[in-house]
Simulated assay, not measured.
Amino acid sequence: MMKKSSALREVLFAAAIMLATAVSALSPVNAQERRQDRQPDRAGNFDFYVLSLSWSPTFCATAKGGRNDQQCGIDKRFRFVVHGLWPQYEKGYPDFCRTSEPERVPRTVGEKMFDIMPSMGLVGHQWRKHGSCSGLNQETYFDKVRQAYERVAIPADLTRGDRPLSLSADEIEQKFLSANPGMSHRGIAASCEGRQLEEIRICLTKDLAFRDCAEVDRRGCTISQVTLPPAR
């Protein structure tokens, strides 16, 4: 009798485990996980671009030496540089897309960008993570990066870099708006690292016209005072 009772308990326990597993599979948590399990990103399948302009002195304040010397060496005086031109969805973004292009960017291609993207490390990483999702080949993508950079007028009083400059994020954005007719508050965001300006993110159509981008705008810096550290 004891053996039968023990066997019955084991059967009931196993049945309970199976039932719990089935219920769990149908629970909202697991259903949410399945919904987030998106398909691989496809090159060329995106809605718009974000041009990210990094304030180089902020980056170089914590990234001196080694491979960053090309951008941050003692003889360098970079101000705004291109962090990247990023394909975006209306919500979220694609990255590391499959492409027939090589992962490695030839130096002959990268060197042409050094005036606005001052290191092969930066050029190569931006291609692999973001450029690969543009649907363009490497040379055409980096031509697009330059066109986007030249599309934006950078306010002259922000680029002097001879002394620290403190403004609100809204004031920084307003200077860009004043210098770029057609740009709106909903299409630009200043990003901060602590209390220093990290970068300016500007939303552009695939044809590089200014456009609004609610998600990017919401993630902008909102502190009252943002400092642009000097180039030296």
Rank of each mutant, 00 (worst) to 15 (best):
P181V: 08
M1S: 13
R201Y: 08
S56Q: 15
R160E: 00
N180Q: 03
Y89G: 05
D207S: 15
Q196N: 15
N45R: 12
N68K: 01
G121I: 01
I200W: 04
H130K: 05
N180F: 02
D170M: 09
Q71V: 08
D143W: 00
A209Y: 10
D95I: 01
S5P: 00
C221S: 09
A153E: 01
F176I: 04
L19H: 03
L165D: 01
G65L: 11
E173G: 09
A189I: 08
W127Y: 05
D75A: 11
H125K: 12
R38I: 12
W86Q: 11
E171A: 15
G110F: 01
S166C: 04
G182H: 08
G92S: 07
F142L: 10
I116S: 02
E198T: 02
R79N: 11
Q71I: 10
Q39C: 02
R232P: 03
R98S: 14
S184I: 00
P40K: 02
F59A: 03
R160A: 02
G131K: 04
K144L: 15
V123I: 14
R211D: 00
F114T: 04
G65D: 10
A7E: 15
Y49R: 02
G135C: 10
V109W: 00
A16R: 05
A189P: 06
A189L: 08
S191L: 13
I202P: 06
L19E: 00
P102H: 07
Q70H: 05
R67D: 12
G135P: 09
D75I: 02
E173M: 13
